[in-house]
């Protein structure tokens, strides 16, 4: 229930922030030339995709939680 609420609030914020409404026109607040820190490879969650795929595979066979891993998923493929 709490998670659902968080997701809804996040979506509402996104909708507001993305709204094309002329009376409330938030502009993108981080300009392209201000993104040098974000572009640094150390900031990437998928800095090492092949390692992330292995970690997801190790965990999916040993834990019941699945989904939203960010690696595409696909199941353990094992029994």
């Amino acid at each position: 229930m709490v998670i659902k609420l968080i997701v809804k609030v996040a979506l509402i914020i996104s909708l507001i922030s993305l709204s094309g409404c002329a009376s409330f026109p938030p502009k993108p607040w981080v300009k392209p030339y201000e993104r040098q820190f974000l572009a640094d490879p150390i900031m990437r969650l998928a800095r090492h995709p092949i390692a992330n795929m292995h970690i997801a595979h190790v965990l999916e066979g040993r834990e019941s939680a699945r989904g939203a891993e960010g690696t595409g998923g696909g199941g353990c493929g094992c029994n």
Binding site: I3, D40, R44, L45, A65, R66, G67, A68, G70
Partner: peptide, 26 residues
């Protein structure tokens, strides 16, 4: 049937280093 929600974030520290975070509920 299952449902998972995950929140992730990356933060660039005042010096050149990154803090990475995630929380998932299933």
């Amino acid at each position: 049937n299952s449902f998972a929600t995950k929140l992730s974030a990356s933060y660039y520290l005042p010096y050149r280093a990154a803090l990475l975070f995630h929380y998932r509920y299933f």
